[in-house]
Write a protein that binds this DNA or RNA. Structure first.
Lengths: 218, 218
DNA sequence: TATATTTGTTAGACTAACCTAACTTTATAT
DNA sequence: ATATAAAGTTAGGTTAGTCTAACAAATATA
């Protein structure tokens, strides 16, 4: 059985290389940064994960998940998103509160618990942030999505998910009047720095390119 | 913040010395046995817990919880029993399945989660095994209880809790036709070894003294 | 293309939680 | 009351996961 730490490394690699990622391989430094450890620490773990056949990795080379590692990673993501859904739907947590607690709950080991939780929640397909929930077989549907920054001036789109699940980001999102399924109209875009003016429910806001890159729309 | 391991030591000490225990102090060996570690290991932890002012302890002396330690222990017991109730009431786990998973869930750190879970469950007072659930202030009602072995021949009593929450014991309990609130009539008792004959819902069974010591009745 | 910068690795050290083996103290039992 | 048994402690070792400091390789840039 994997330790919580090992699970966190696999999950981080999944986010870096598999799900909605531009690159299919990750580096030691970015992995370490994502997990808030030093590169030396990550390096030790990479050797261990390779030994366990969970990742592809050669000294000084790039890192990617093996099919076994990917399977494990998806299982953790599944648990994370089901717990987030539980917290949001049943316990009345807000959008920005669910992530941190789910980070702990995702490491509970009990296949029966997850099966029953999923049933209890009515087999949900997306979590409170709009991310797809993998099914028990590890299948997950990657919806076609663009980022808000890719939408042309004058067009209207719908928020389907957010890239960053941190409380600070989500609180900002809410302050602009946005939530899942919000309709967003793009009023204007600055060539210079990508700053955009948007309209949500009649309310106009100015958002940075960085912000717009973290909003998924369809 | 306490580690999971530290929490487990405090919980074990609580069960040994506070709740329904004959003795107000515990020894190193019995503590180690309860936690499935060697006495030497427990000894190391005792020094640490003393340093943190969670237990009263002197070399070669007996062990007991400080008021701070007791508060922490009760909080863990509270979480354990609320999670057991959730698993039983909402996810349709059986009596004997809840304990093991709750052993993991009790270590999730989030005061808000427990408050909201308690509310979601409707502020339950007892868990699926009949044990009292402490409230948010750490108050718990110790019901007056006897063990089945203390009931006189000819008398009838009601099962209110079980001492051992392990799956094996609970499965045995179920096989005798017993559950929470079952009416038990004591038909006979052997002087020699304490073996008892009981009747539950018209079904007669013979049970050992050891078994009867683990059934709480009122 | 040679050098500087970034990226990645190694060596050595630390802490928490565990172990075994040897030892000491306390309790028990003639 | 003393010997034996039981209970408890200490010393030294292991593993997982972390760190810092020094070094090596790969990449970018002038």
């Amino acid at each position: 059985m994997l330790s919580q730490t090992e699970e966190n490394y696999l999950k981080a690699l999944f986010h870096l290389t598999e799900e909605y990622a531009d690159k299919p391989e990750a580096g030691t430094n970015e992995l370490a940064a994502m997990l808030n450890v030093k590169p030396a620490t990550a390096n030790d773990m990479l050797k261990k994960l390779k030994e366990k056949k969970l990742i592809h990795y050669e000294k000084y080379g790039k890192i990617s998940l093996t099919s076994l590692g990917k399977k494990q990673a998806i299982d953790i993501v599944r648990k994370h998103r089901l717990w987030e859904t539980f917290l949001y739907e049943k316990l009345e947590f807000t959008w920005d509160e669910v992530h941190e607690v789910a980070e702990q709950l995702e490491h509970i080991h009990s296949p029966k618990l997850i099966e029953k939780l999923e049933k209890f929640l009515g087999y949900p397909l997306i979590d409170p942030h709009g991310d797809a929930i993998p099914n028990a077989k590890g299948e997950l549907k990657l919806q076609a999505r663009k980022t808000l920054s890719q939408i042309a001036v004058g067009k209207t789109c719908k928020l389907v998910a957010v890239r960053d699940n941190s409380a600070t980001f989500l609180q900002y999102v809410v302050s602009v009047g946005l939530g899942l399924s919000s309709k967003i109209k793009v009023l204007n875009r600055q060539e210079f720095d990508g700053t955009m003016e948007i309209e949500v429910n009649g309310k106009k806001s100015s958002v940075s390119e960085r912000f717009a890159n973290n909003i998924f729309v369809a």
